[in-house]
Each structure stands twice: as structure tokens, then as C-alpha cells.
Design a protein around this nucleic acid. Sequence first.
DNA 1: TTTGGTTTTACGGTTTACCGTAACATCCTG
DNA 2: CAGGATGTTACGGTAAACCGTAAAACCAAA
Lengths: 222, 222
Amino acid sequence: MFKKILVVEDLDSVGHGISMMLEKELAVPEVVLTKYCDEAYLKIQNDLQNNTPFDLLITDLSFKHDHRPLRLKSGRDLVEKIVEKGYKIPIIICSVEEKNTMIKNLTDIDNVVSYILKGRDGLKELKKAVCEVVKGNTYFPEKIITLTKRSPSFEIESYDVSLLRHLSNGLSQNQIATLFITKGISPSSLSSIEKRLNKLKDVLKASNNVQLVANAKDIGLI
Amino acid sequence: MFKKILVVEDLDSVGHGISMMLEKELAVPEVVLTKYCDEAYLKIQNDLQNNTPFDLLITDLSFKHDHRPLRLKSGRDLVEKIVEKGYKIPIIICSVEEKNTMIKNLTDIDNVVSYILKGRDGLKELKKAVCEVVKGNTYFPEKIITLTKRSPSFEIESYDVSLLRHLSNGLSQNQIATLFITKGISPSSLSSIEKRLNKLKDVLKASNNVQLVANAKDIGLI
DNA sequence: TTTGGTTTTACGGTTTACCGTAACATCCTG
DNA sequence: CAGGATGTTACGGTAAACCGTAAAACCAAA
């Protein structure tokens, strides 16, 4: 079994349930529980540098925001940060999120070895997932597979997602263009960004940027 | 302490956390856990007739629906059914639901002696609540009181919500203006709509309409 | 190297959003 | 009624989004 697992979950009731299961039922010697993604990222980074890395990350997706100013506001942000840094830690996502595009985007990531829907048997499913992952397998319940299969065949790349993200964060198309230029992301011209957004508007049936971002949020793309 | 508590919670991870807390920390001898409101109602009714009634009901509000056909689809239905029957069992509601009208409606009910927001310290709060309720008191956290008693400095009216809805549906400010004119909704001028949107941008910390709608979706306003 | 097709970029024009300022209307209070 | 406070509408200028078209750059195969 895993020796050291990090659980990221804001609701203490859920967090206790999960860590209890890991400790009592699966006899994991070290379970670390944190309620913030920022904190989780620091722990992962820290323990990696100290040569005592986590064997597994179990994370929720949506987190309540309180007084604290946060850099990583969701489990998705955390996962993307880990991928960006090239960390090889396996990740099990445990969420109530059922939007298929969101699930598809996440399960496409190599680190994400399992996606568990919080539900009436979520804890049982999570236990099964951990048992499979420790053997080097992935574990995706039937419901997750059907949800992702049914996803639209339009291929929306990470470029499109980042475009929508920047838009939803209040950047103008022009600002995104200059940002992409400085970051060396291509295409970066305003014209190309416009064209790409037009394609997205077509796919997501939106008539302007506002509706585009709204629809993207509705289907869990961002 | 209470002798017999019924916990109604569909997510097993949360349910385990709560019943564990009640049994281990508060030494409640009998904790019954159920995942369906219908089942909960039958148990309450049954044990009352058998002269072994529950001392307390702890219930969630929103429940996932699966294959089972349900008569009571939410915690609210359950509470209202109990009130309708005149059962005197005290009720603690434990939910993520933060909408003030919903909270206000529920906390006005006599049976509802506490409302706990599931959050980072939800379990701790629930423990406090049970300890107060057993003494015959009610327990409403500060946040609940502020949510019900006083509305925020800037009250977001249904007008604002409809404005945001129309925006998210792809209408331009101009189109919304003409729509409001035909519908007789006031204010309807483009200028007023702009002004109202500016206020909303201020409140929701958005720099343009795109971010405004994105943020409104994030906090569940639309 | 040439060719054809795709992607990226450039540009001009129209509409809409954005942001002041100010006039007009309404309501309440002294 | 006068006065102020608030709410609504009007207008003008700048920035950005929107929507064509077309040139330039890129790439793979002939």
C-alpha cells in the first residue's frame, strides 16, 4: 500500500471520512490532510525537495473561498500546476463535478489515474480506486467512462481553454495577444485570437464573448 | 447527551464523518445513518410508533437522484413533511446551501434549531450545535445570522440577476434595453443598464462584462 | 525548387462596450 | 413650495469587439 498520501479537501466532514478510510481500512501510515490548494502545492513541492515525496494525491475540485487570498482556487488549478512543473505524482480526483468536458479534460492528463464521483458510494469507490492505483493501474468507474465517451467530438485544445480562461479573468483580446507574444505562445496575433474565438463561438453556439465564456463555464470547460 | 440520532446524508464520505464524530467524540450510543429522505421519514415515523423515537435529526438539503423514484426529493421536503405531521423532533440542517432566502425560510421553522454550513469547519460547528441543542438551545453561527438578518451593503436584486442572465444569453446591452422597454421593465435605458452593470462590476470585482458574467456564474448568482 | 493548401498575420470598417459628464425626473422632508 | 437626495435618461468620445478580406508565412508533397 502507499506510504504517504496527501488529501486536499476543504469540507472537514469529507476530509475526515476519507483520511479515516485510508488510515483504518487501507492502513496507510501517513495521511496528510489540507484544506487549501495553495497549501497542498507547497507541501508537495517541499516534501519532494526533502526527499520524502507523497506517493499519491487525492483532491477535490471545487473549494469554498473564504478570507484567504488564493493563487490556486480549484483542484483543477492544482492539477495543472503539478503538470506544469512536471511532477510525476499520481492523482485521484474526487468530486461531485459531473460535467463531461471537465471530466474529459482532466482524465486526459497523465497524472490523473482515477476520477471518483462523490455520491452515495463515493467512499467505497475511492477505496477501490486507491487499491487499483497502488498496483499501477488506472481506475475509472463505468459512469465516468460513459460520461466522457458522450463528450462532443469537437477537439478543443488547451490553447482554446487558456484563451477562454484569460477572457473570463477580464483580459481583453489585445491583452491576451501581447501576453501570448511575451510568453512565446503561438498563434499570438490579435487576428488569430479573433479567428479562434469565432470558431469557439461557432462550436459553443455563442454570439459574443460574454455568452461564449458563460457557455464554456456551463459545460465545465473552464 | 442525546441517546438516538438520525443522520440523513447521501454522500457516504460526509455521512461517515458525521456519525463518527457523534459516536466517538460525543458518545452518542445510537446513530442511524440513511441516504434517502423517504427512508428517513419512514424511520422517524416507525420508531415513534414503537415508542423508541429519535431525539434529533441531522439532515442535508440537496440529494443526488439515482434510479430510485422518490417522494421526498430534498431535505426541505423532509423537514416540511415532519412539520406537517406535527412531529416535535428537533432538526439540525447541515448543508452547503448559502442562499439567504432558503436559509431564512428554513430557520423560521420551529423544529429547525440549528443551521450549519458545510465548510472548512463544518464538522466542528456541527459538534457545537449538537452540544447546544442537547441543552435545549438553538445554535445559529454568525454567518447564518448575517445571511438572514441583514442583506449585504449592496443588495443584488432580481433585476440585476435578469440583467446578467440576458448578458450570458448573448444579448447586447442595447438589445436588453429594447427588451426592457417592450416588457415595461424599468429602468430600461441603455444608460441605466450601463450604470447598473458598472455597479455590479464593482461589487463582483470584474473589469468588463465577460469577467462579470464569469464571476456571477462562479458564485452561483446565475 | 515549385506548387498547393493551411496557418498566421495584417488591415479597414462597423458595431458595441466602456467611461465620463450632465440634464431631467421623482420622491421625500423641512 | 423649496431644497436636496436619489434614480433615470441623454450624449459624446475612446477603446474594444466584431466581421469581412487579403497578404504573408509555413509546410508537405511533387
